[in-house]
Design a protein around this nucleic acid. Structure first.
Length: 380
RNA sequence: GGGCGGUUCGCAUAGCGGCAAUUGCAUCAGACUGUAAAUCUGAUGUCUUCGGACUACGGGGGUUCGAGUCCCUCACCGCCCA
């Protein structure tokens, strides 16, 4: 049994679960730190483990381009290649269809900001992706060479990589895309989902289908209904979200989608990582998360704290001898002052990225510890 | 003593008659949600009723409608030859 539901909250739709893979278990709700290119940037796998994470997520698109899925397969698979013995997930490359396609160079993320409402994406930058019924053709961001992903190719690459959890090849749309476009993209994603299920051969890997539909209620429901009815091992909620009343925000989307996703299977909210969003999503029945945010913000000098974000580069921290967070037991907070961290970032020292990444992931891990505890104690 | 070269907004640079003046660094602010991200964006003479106005390229003098930009001179800093 891949997923075992251990407890359902009486106060919300939150749940405790256990994911069992050939490479160990994950207690859910859980967070996958993102290891796009087969490394959680700045940390060793041992460090990630010691902080408290059971699984990490790598990316099919990046590893296919460099160093190549065939090479990784030859070298014993991704677990062995990157020395990560635990549960491992790979994204399908579907998100890159957005980030290198309609999202490319537009300054638009996958979540629309209030100040972006009414904007149209008229980016002049050359998009690196072309989409058709069969798949997508894209230009490598590394050397400009041309490549093609189809559902079949994505699954084949993910089988070569050998992660425990793999994702169906989908299309994440821009939050600026209209209803009609989202409907077409969603229907195409549905056809791709069936092809992914059909082509997958390797055992010991669990395939997640992905719900799309953008910020539109009707589409989200239809997508959850369709994807939820297919024999996937778990389900991802992906795509873009809107803002305000007319377009569904993350919490709206979960309200629309969760009722159609089988209770006996794990649910993964793709790419959402702010703590408030996570807590909200857990209460709505999400089990798994991944997000580049804590590690990226860390590298950019932003420390997550229980009082919000702290940009350690700000001049006010230059002479401050206290740790980032008084009661934090991460390595950085136990040993270094804000002044020192400010210095490391300004001096562009590698240790800065390491300490900040470690802190942010530490905070994230403790946050998930607390969430699990609260569910266990019936408080959430 | 002689010969070159240099002195530009914190530092370093560009500029060869129309210039509030290039670029890098630094500084300040902002962004970051399935990672083209140790990245990216913006600001960085003063004042402004946002139209502009004023003061600026070592000092002084000159040529010119107009001078970092050309000429003279002084000061300082380099390098080379005695």
């Amino acid at each position: 049994m891949f997923f075992k539901l251990l407890k359902k909250s009486k106060k919300s739709k939150a749940r405790l679960g256990l994911i069992k893979t050939e490479h160990g278990v994950m207690k859910t709700p859980a967070f996958f730190p993102v290891a796009t290119k087969a490394t959680v940037k700045a940390l060793t796998p041992e460090e990630v483990r010691e902080i408290g994470f059971e699984g990490i997520l790598a990316n099919t698109y990046h590893l296919y381009l460099q160093p190549g899925n065939k090479l990784i397969k030859k070298l014993g698979g991704l677990h062995q290649f990157m020395n990560w013995p635990g549960p491992l997930a790979t994204d399908s490359g579907g998100f890159q269809v957005f980030s290198l396609g309609s999202g490319f160079g537009s300054g638009i993320g996958k979540i629309l900001k209030p100040e972006q409402v009414g904007l149209r994406d008229n980016s002049q930058k050359l998009k690196l992706v072309k989409i058709d019924e069969d798949g997508v053709t894209f230009t490598s961001h590394l050397d400009g060479s041309r490549h093609r992903f189809t559902p079949e190719i994505s699954i084949k690459i993910q089988e070569d990589l050998g992660a425990d959890i793999i994702f169906a090849f989908d299309e994440a749309t821009s939050p600026l895309a209209d209803y009609e476009y989202n409907r077409k993209a969603m229907e195409r994603t549905h056809r791709w989902a069936k092809r992914c299920l059909k082509i997958k051969k390797r055992t010991g890997q669990f395939l997640f289908g992905i719900v799309q539909g953008g910020p539109f209620k009707e589409l989200r429901k239809a997508s959850a209904q369709f994807i939820g009815s297919l024999p996937f091992d778990g389900f991802g909620v992906g795509g873009s979200y809107g803002v305000g009343d007319s377009l569904g925000r993350v919490d709206d989307v979960l309200d629309w989608v969760i009722p159609y996703l089988p209770e006996s299977k794990p649910r993964h909210l793709l790419g959402i990582g702010y703590l408030n969003d996570i807590k909200m999503a857990v209460k709505k029945g999400i089990d798994l998360f991944d997000c580049a945010m804590p590690t990226r913000l860390g590298r950019h000098g932003v420390f997550l704290t229980n009082k919000g974000e702290m940009n350690i580069l700000r001049p006010i921290h230059r002479t401050d001898n206290q740790p980032v967070m008084k009661n934090c037991r991460c390595y950085a907070c136990q040993n270094y002052s804000r002044a020192y961290l400010n210095h490391l970032f300004k001096a562009n020292e590698i240790l800065a990225a390491r300490l900040a990444t470690e802190h942010n992931l530490w905070l994230m891990a403790r946050f998930f510890d607390r969430i699990k505890k609260e569910i266990r104690m019936g408080k959430l």
